[in-house]
Structures are given as C-alpha cells and as structure tokens.
C-alpha cells in the first residue's frame, strides 16, 4: 500500500476559543481528490492553511509524506505542498509571466536564476490555462477570472505533490470551472499527487472528488466516499437548510429544496 501524502491524526482546528473541528483523522493517498464541504466559517480554509503551517496548529498531528510538520522547514514544505488562495493580492505591479514564475521560487537555490526548464514549465502552465498570449500583460489589467487562471498556472508551475485549493471555482465561468478542475484532477491522477479542495459547490465536489470531508461547524465532521457522505440528511444538517438530490444520467445533482 502506498503511504499517504498527507495524514492528520486527532487534529483540532480552532479559531480563537471556538473549536471548528475536533479529532479530525484524514488521509490523502497519491491520486486521491478530497473535497472539504461545510457552511461559511466551518473551518474549510483553516484546515487548508493548517496543512501548510499558515496558521497556528498542533504541527505534530499533521504528517506530510510520513513526517510531522514540525520536521518540515517552510522552504522544504513549499516544494511539496502548494496552495491556491481564495483571494489574490495584486497591489504591487507585476506581469503575468513574472507572477507565474513565482511558482518556481521554492525549487531554486539561493542566488540562482531560473533555468530553461523553469521557463518551459511556466509557459506550459500558461498555455494550459489559456493565458499564453498575455504573458507580458500587467496583472492589474486582468479580469477576475483571468487572475484566478493565472493563480492556477502559478500553482501548476510550482508542481507540488499536494494541491490545496481554496474555492478553485471563484471568479470562473461555468466552462472554465469544469475545464480547470478536470485539468487539476487529471494532473493529480497522472502525477500520483493528491488534491484537497475547499468548495461551496457540492456538485463540483461530487463530480471531481472521490472523497468528501463534511464539516458541521460545531466540532463534528463526517468523511468517506462520495456516496457515503453526500446524503440529503447530512448535507441538510451541515448547511442548515434542506438539501435534496436528483439522480440523472450524467450523475447526481444537489439543490436546496427550500
């Protein structure tokens, strides 16, 4: 059996005094795609940030490639784990090309310049997300959706073995949502990497992921395969409104009933 890329053991997520999720046991093996679902403020982002040491957490309870987070330096961790943030900050000027090249930063040694391979990876990533003709444009001139695609290209350039995606469908139109998630999930399956995505879209989660973590926001959670977790009862309880599903030829779809 292949060892998991990420594993949490009895992890507690909290913000201030509020416990969002307690005794969380989670694993993601190579090729696995895990969706994190739950209401606003239920701890989805906190979980993703915890896995990358971006917020205070008990680092002994999180293992990446079998090693506890305490033994990972931030620089080493960034070569294995990459994140797509919910918001991008573009206060300072930068071109599309410069932004996508930032993905190579964790892989470069001090005082070294990017190699031809790094440039190839970056321009390949830009081509995949359809931004290759905008490489010299200033980031501030891009639309919201283009910025999101740029951030995804930057993450692909970073080439991590664990992809953390925080609301990856933000700002994307419906065709790019499908294209992008298809691309990312295929990449994960081909490379033997793993993917954890926090999303508010149950349908995207059920379509592209094979594992679901449903956070109830009161410290409890349920996790397992899509069919085990995505029941009307559990979803209705997690979101605080009645949710029903409809089975069609192209899959199961979820919608709010009230």
């Amino acid at each position: 059996m292949t060892s998991p890329i990420v594993e949490t053991r009895q992890l507690r997520l909290q913000v201030g005094d509020r416990v969002l999720c307690d005794q969380l046991n989670l694993t993601a093996a190579p090729g696995q795609r895990l969706a994190v679902l739950g209401q606003n403020g239920s701890g989805k982002t906190t979980l993703l940030h915890s896995l990358l040491k971006l917020c205070p957490v008990d680092e002994d309870r999180i293992h990446i490639n079998g090693l506890p987070l305490t033994q990972w330096s931030r620089a080493e961790l960034a070569t294995r784990v990459g994140i797509l943030f919910q918001d991008n900050h573009d206060d300072m000027p930068a071109s599309v090309h410069e932004t996508v090249m930032l993905g190579r930063l964790p892989h470069l040694r001090a005082w070294r310049w990017e190699s031809a391979d790094d440039f190839r990876l970056a321009s390949h990533a830009l081509t995949i997300v359809g931004l290759e003709h905008m490489a010299q444009r200033d980031v501030s001139s891009l639309s919201g959706g283009e910025r999101q695609r740029l951030a995804i290209a930057s993450l692909l350039t970073q080439n991590p073995s664990l992809y953390l995606l925080d609301e990856p469908s933000n700002h994307l139109d419906i065709s790019f949502q499908i294209k992008t998630l298809k691309l990312l999930t295929e990449t994960v399956q081909q490379d033997g990497s793993a993917l954890i995505m926090a999303t508010h879209d149950i349908n995207l989660a059920s379509r592209f992921c094979d594992q679901i973590l449903l956070l109830f926001g009161d410290g409890t959670y349920t996790t397992g395969s899509n069919t085990d977790v995505l029941t009307d009862d559990a979803l209705s309880r997690a979101y605080g409104c009645e949710i029903r599903h409809v089975a069609t030829e192209s899959g199961t779809f979820y919608f709010p009933a009230s």
């Binding site: 971006l54 931030r74 960034a78 070569t79 900050h89 300072m92 930068a94 932004t99 930063l105 005082w111």
Partner: peptide, 21 residues
C-alpha cells in the same frame, strides 16, 4: 540576497509564506 523573497512578499504575506519564505 532577499530579492526573490521580495518578489513573493509583494504578492502578500500569506503568499510569500506559502512559497516557503
């Protein structure tokens, strides 16, 4: 010696930390 880290920090502290700074 910190120039590349500055490129990352220009995109925000969280982004810089996520890139290993």
């Amino acid at each position: 010696s910190q120039a590349r880290a500055l490129n990352a920090l220009a995109r925000g502290e969280l982004m810089a930390a996520a890139l290993g700074v």
